[in-house]
Amino acid sequence: MQLDEIRESFAFFDSWEDRYRFVIDIGRDLPELPREYRVAENIVRGCQSQVWLMTELRDGRLRLTIDSDAHIVRGLIVIVLAAYQGKTPADVGAFDIEALFDELDLFRHLSPTRGNGLRSMVARIRHEADQAAD
């Protein structure tokens, strides 16, 4: 899913119901991570639900594989992937994801607690991009 599609959809929403239905729906298309990768070293800490994250650098671009056992978090992962998937480490470093979250009003509507781990996920991706850039 492209970032523009997400932006356009969010622009139309005027109720929390619409936002959540959309987030849950886009999460349904996220491929499930095979069980053998759902291991401790791939777990992102700081999430109430489980989030598994793997990164690799292929042809200078970041390949992210992320999954969660919660529907809403899977939807948030699709948004994070739209921002970061296939980008160079430099692009990841330069991208202002906080501005995107503000624009989508994600933290007001989708992050009542630290529980969904969106920030932990982003911090980990940025950290790994940083390391890959070195």
């Binding site: 849950i24 639900s49 529907h71 809403i72 969904n116």
Partner: peptide
């Protein structure tokens, strides 16, 4: 669903 989904909703 996950407890977290229900807690959020």
């Amino acid at each position: 669903g996950h407890p977290h989904d229900f807690g959020t909703l």
